[in-house]
Design a protein around this nucleic acid. Structure first.
Lengths: 248, 248
DNA sequence: CGCAGCCTTGACCATTATCAACGCTGGTGG
DNA sequence: CCACCAGCGTTGATAATGGTCAAGGCTGCG
């Protein structure tokens, strides 16, 4: 059974109208005109690796010999400053690639969040197989382009949004792409710790915690447990996320 | 004469060793195995447009009908919040594409910084031509992947660096890619205003100004004019940029 | 020469970080 | 089975970085 996947350009556009027709209900899938046989050629040159929760997969500064594809579980990717400050640049799930950047060393570290399995490719072999399958190259281009747009949204969040706006945006992003429960009446599962949310949103864990209780007090969300919440007032939350509270 | 270009994955790796061999001294060029004839096919379907400094090229929220390539001059790309807060996500120069993201509406606005000329493609035609030229698709993939890595670096800057570290990083980034004067003994030209630097680094113009004078007072840089400076102590500046001042 | 648009500097303020204490929860071992 | 501990999360008090508001300076252009 084929494990390797290329996530489509995300099913997030649900909200924006243009749902990924090739994708159906699942959050990831083989998309963009690549058939299983073609992915099979790529999978054939992969090492299949398993990682325990918390285990390191790649380290910032190491020689960038490999390209990775997540096949199950979840992975956090981050950059560190020498004194330990951490910026998480992404939470990755099945179908996501990382390590594509054409640099001699990894600019990031990656660790398993939950137990995870990955395909690992030697860069040169990966390059030549991908190069051989234009449809795959096209799908990757679309995917990476989409990630670039997401990264630019995150730049807006980190550069210009308040703590409350950041958390509101974050909650909605999770809700929109939660692969397991597609917003069953506003239910959102936070697979990550407060520290991870903080390092993703550029805040501290204390501020994250305070904002959650503030949103709760305002009746905008309800905290069901530390890792589960329900969105009670989606419009208010969306208003915060889009910065429509400070309007001029 | 061919105007359209695909920037290589940047000549920045100068510092990191692996210079772009296909590129030579110029900061951008036709790279990655695409020849002029192939680019010519793309250029053939382009509208050539000129924009005056300050003029808008695309607006956040408009239908995303076009893809753009900068052929001369410079362009700023940014996202706005409804109250006017602005995050500049990139300064673009000849050879840079934008509007590639497969979304129904532009998630960004773009304006000419200096007078600029661009190639503009209808998205569908663009797609089909690119799709027809695997070497071009491959070059774009590499380029976009590189930009994604740069965007993630910017996320680290915006999420975790102090004002001083941000400006130090910014100065070095400009110095490394300045297309005109490749660091003639530390000389750096800032083509942008303080407001643009602020909106790129997630600060205010006042803070940007204060940090510049602080770096000047510390003897790390010298301000030759508002738009020109010289790096006096490159190691100190690099140390700040990498966060090596707060080390534990 | 004068004005407009940037830039700089200063005084004050607010948001968020830091430091600290405490509570909850789940797992382990007595 | 219960008690304890470790790790995570919450809350409070205080501090600091950077933002806001305001005034004034410089520069280039008409």
């Amino acid at each position: 059974m084929l494990e390797l996947r290329v996530r489509s350009t995300d099913c997030r556009p649900r909200a924006a109208g243009a749902a990924c027709s090739a994708c159906g209900a699942r959050a990831f899938s083989v998309c963009g005109g690549i058939d299983g046989a073609q992915l099979g050629r790529l999978e054939a040159i992969a090492d299949k690796l398993g990682f325990k929760a918390g285990q390191g997969i790649a380290r910032q500064g190491d020689r960038a010999d490999h390209v990775f594809n997540v096949t199950s579980g979840s992975v956090r990717v981050f950059r560190l400053l020498p004194d330990g400050r951490r910026q998480i640049t992404g939470f990755l799930f099945a179908g996501d690639f990382f390590g594509l950047a054409p640099h001699p060393e990894y600019a990031f570290s990656a660790e398993a969040m939950e137990d995870a399995t990955l395909c690992r490719f030697r860069r040169a072999e990966y390059q030549s197989v991908v190069h051989d399958i234009p449809a795959l190259e096209a799908a990757l281009l679309e995917r990476v382009t989409h990630e670039l747009a997401a990264a630019e949204n995150q730049m807006l969040l980190l550069g210009r949004k308040t703590a409350q706006e950041r958390i509101a945006t974050f909650i909605l992003a999770i809700a929109d792409r939660d692969p397991l429960r597609p917003d069953v009446n506003g239910h959102v599962r936070l697979a990550m710790t407060r520290a991870e949310i903080a390092d993703y949103t550029g805040l501290t864990i204390e501020t994250v915690s305070r904002v959650f209780t503030r949103l709760k007090t305002a009746g905008i969300i309800r905290l069901l447990s530390v890792h589960d919440l329900r969105i009670e007032l989606p419009e208010r939350l969306r208003g915060l996320a889009e910065g429509r509270s400070r309007e001029p």
